[in-house]
């Protein structure tokens, strides 16, 4: 279908640009690790003994870091479109604004996932979470990590769903980075609440403990993907 091919090409373009400037990925990874270290130095050197407390600490550090990194990624992605009028070049091809939305969500999602896959194990190691895990969980470590990445993925998807449209409306303003943070952060609170709860649950019990929180993440993603898909036309065309 024509739509998928167009979206595919747009994603390809975004990924090429993101990785063309190689320092961008490195920069965001280093930034994230630095944020994690800030929390480690603030809480350490001896972290809470109890598994649940340690898990909550890990969850806060992970989700906080990914939010901040995500904002940098969003800003950067829209900067590229704004510079030299590239977005107008895209508009002129007559491509549907909603396809632009989907391609941005996917490419920023993939970029952030790459970051998160790298930073999550590093964070868990720095906070020494792995040694306090119950023996049963330690045995299934790869499986546990996979589930954790899965939860982070759904949260990241929700973040991107809102982030792309909010970034679209704030990118053409002076002070766009701060403005993006001020508008976007309140909107992402459910992701933080739900994501952190799921993370703690995984780290303490290996399971999600009922489907409530994961459902919040899923519903959040669906609601904002659908509404932003429709609203993005107004962001691009005015």
């Amino acid at each position: 279908m024509e739509a998928f091919r167009q979206i595919g090409w747009l994603i390809h373009k975004d990924l090429a640009l993101q990785f063309r400037t190689k320092d961008m990925l490195a920069l965001i990874i280093v930034f994230s690790v630095l944020v994690v270290l800030i929390f480690c130095f603030a809480f350490g050197p001896i972290f809470p003994e109890q598994l649940e407390e340690r898990g909550k600490l890990a969850a806060s550090v992970l989700w906080g870091t990914f939010l901040f990194a995500g904002i940098i990624a969003l800003n950067r992605s829209f900067d590229i479109e704004r510079m030299n009028g590239a977005l107008h070049g895209l508009r002129l091809t007559g491509v549907d604004a909603s396809y632009l939305y989907l391609s941005k969500v996917v490419s920023i999602f993939l970029f952030l996932m790459l970051l998160e896959v790298v930073v999550t194990p590093i964070t868990l190691q720095f906070l020494d979470v792995l040694t306090v895990l119950p023996v049963a969980l330690q045995a299934q470590l790869p499986w546990l990590l996979l589930k954790l990445i899965g939860v982070i993925a759904i949260g990241t998807l929700g973040f991107c769903a809102v982030g792309v449209v909010v970034s679209g409306i704030s990118t053409n303003t002076p002070g766009k980075e701060s403005l993006l943070s001020v508008i976007l952060l309140p909107l992402t609170f459910p992701v933080v609440m739900a994501g952190a709860k799921c993370t703690v649950s995984l780290l303490t019990t290996g399971g999600l403990g009922g489907n409530f929180w994961i459902s919040v993440l899923v519903v959040y993603s669906l609601v904002f993907l659908a509404s932003s898909y429709l609203l993005f036309e107004f962001v691009v065309e005015g």
């Binding site: 809102v162 449209v165 409306i169 053409n172 909107l187 107004f234 962001v235 005015g238």
Partner: peptide
């Protein structure tokens, strides 16, 4: 804050988008 930062042209449409999403 968004409204005060935006130029006249986009102000209304963009704040409407935020009003809905919020």
């Amino acid at each position: 804050i968004l409204r005060s930062a935006l130029a006249e042209e986009k102000k209304r449409v963009y704040s409407a988008v935020l009003g809905i999403i919020g």
